[in-house]
Write a protein that binds this DNA or RNA. Structure first.
Length: 257
DNA sequence: ATGTCCTCTCTTAGAGGA
């Protein structure tokens, strides 16, 4: 089973790129972030025509997450991250697909830091930790997947010294990610490629992709039983080089039986 | 400071976000 994540940076502006990649990569499940579209603007029919059923949690202009599935047996489990009634951002959705619980997330960017946006990021992280801890107790096969807006270690960022004060790399953010993983999750990419430089995002600025000045922001966290089924993990890096591409590349893992 | 690209609107330029 192939499970992918892709921050599309505007699903309608990016639809040709998304469809081309889906056709080529044929993932079974795909988590999307940054739809930048309200629920009624979600391209449901185009994705159905491409062979994908979907659940989505949209929002006008910003954020928005979705889970696509080749199997029609996709069922929304919950939407919105619990713990803050006031939180209006669409950043979290869960669905079951053939017995697997997929949790698709778009963690806040948090810049500029310090400031209210950074505080929101850290609060969101706390709520995610709480939700993740609860989910682990269910003893289901679970994937927490998406754009975490965190580079977990220095290996995950080109020129780490330039990023130490950034909301994506500040020590407290890395610590929050580490604490989350320590609950019992497995960072799929690092499990299979512990020492390799792997990026999933390249800024639009300054030819970042051409210089491979990237960041690793998109992660798969696997529950313990699922970690045993992990076979392969890869970034479809070439997609970032396509015309009208997102600033992220699609990332995927292969799970065995 | 800058660079780029997306979306939306008090829209064809500028603002906000990343």
């Amino acid at each position: 089973m192939k499970v992918a994540t892709y921050n599309v940076n505007g699903i309608n502006g990016r639809l040709p790129v998304l469809l081309r990649w889906l056709q080529q990569a044929q993932p079974d499940v795909v988590c999307l972030q940054e739809l930048k579209a309200s629920d009624d603007k979600f391209p449901r029919q185009a994705l159905l025509d491409a062979g994908y059923h979907a659940v989505w949690h949209g929002q006008k202009s910003w954020n928005g997450v979705a889970i696509l599935s080749k199997s029609e047996h996709i069922k929304e489990y919950s939407r919105g991250l619990p713990g803050d009634e006031e939180d209006t951002h669409s950043r979290y959705i869960e669905a079951t697909v053939n017995g697997l619980l997929i949790c698709c997330l778009y963690l806040p960017n948090g810049n500029p830091a310090p400031g209210p946006k950074f505080d929101y990021k850290m609060e969101w992280f706390k709520r995610l930790q709480k939700r993740a801890k609860y989910l682990l107790k269910l003893e289901l096969p679970i994937i927490l997947v998406g754009d975490f807006n965190v580079m977990p270690t220095e290996l995950d960022v080109y020129k780490p010294e330039r990023w130490v004060d950034d909301a994506l790399f500040r020590p407290e953010v890395r610590k929050a990610f580490k604490n989350l993983v320590a609950q019992g999750w497995t960072d799929a990419i690092r499990e299979l490629h512990p020492n390799e430089i792997i990026y999933t995002f390249w800024d639009y600025f300054r030819n970042a992709y051409g210089r491979n000045a990237g960041l690793r922001l998109d992660h798969f966290l696997l529950s313990p039983d699922l970690a045993k089924r992990l076979k392969k993990a890869k970034v479809d890096k070439e997609v970032r080089g396509w015309e009208k591409s997102s600033d992220h590349a699609p990332v995927w893992i292969e799970l065995g039986k």
